[in-house]
Simulated assay, not measured.
Amino acid sequence: MLTEQQQQIITNIYDYVCIKLANDTTGHDIAHIERVVKLAKHIQSFEPQTNLFIVIISAYLHDVIDDKVIENYQSARNDLLAFMAQQPITQDEQLAIFSIIDNMSFSKNLTKQRALSREGQIVQDADRLDAMGAIGIGRAFYYGGNKHDSMYDPNIKPRILKSKADYRQSNTIINHFYEKLLLLKDKINTPEGKRLAEQRHHFLIEFVKRFEIEWEGE
Rank of each mutant, 00 (worst) to 15 (best):
K41G: 05
K38Y: 00
H62M: 08
H42F: 08
I30K: 03
G27W: 01
V64A: 12
N51R: 14
I33Q: 00
P48I: 10
H42M: 11
D63F: 04
T25G: 00
I57N: 14
A31R: 10
I54F: 06
V37H: 03
V69N: 06
I54S: 11
V36D: 01
N51H: 12
P48Y: 05
L61V: 10
L61T: 14
A59M: 07
V55K: 08
D24H: 03
N23F: 01
Y60V: 07
Y60N: 15
I70C: 06
V55A: 09
K68L: 12
K41A: 14
R35H: 08
D29M: 02
F53V: 12
Q44R: 13
V64Q: 07
I33V: 15
A59I: 03
H42Y: 09
A31C: 04
H32F: 09
K41E: 14
Y73S: 04
V64P: 08
S58D: 03
P48A: 11
E47N: 15
G27Y: 01
V64E: 04
V55G: 08
T25K: 15
A31N: 12
Y60P: 09
D66G: 07
I54R: 11
I70F: 03
I43Y: 11
R35S: 07
P48L: 09
K68M: 09
V55H: 05
V37I: 11
K41Q: 15
A40H: 06
Y73M: 07
L39M: 09
H28E: 02
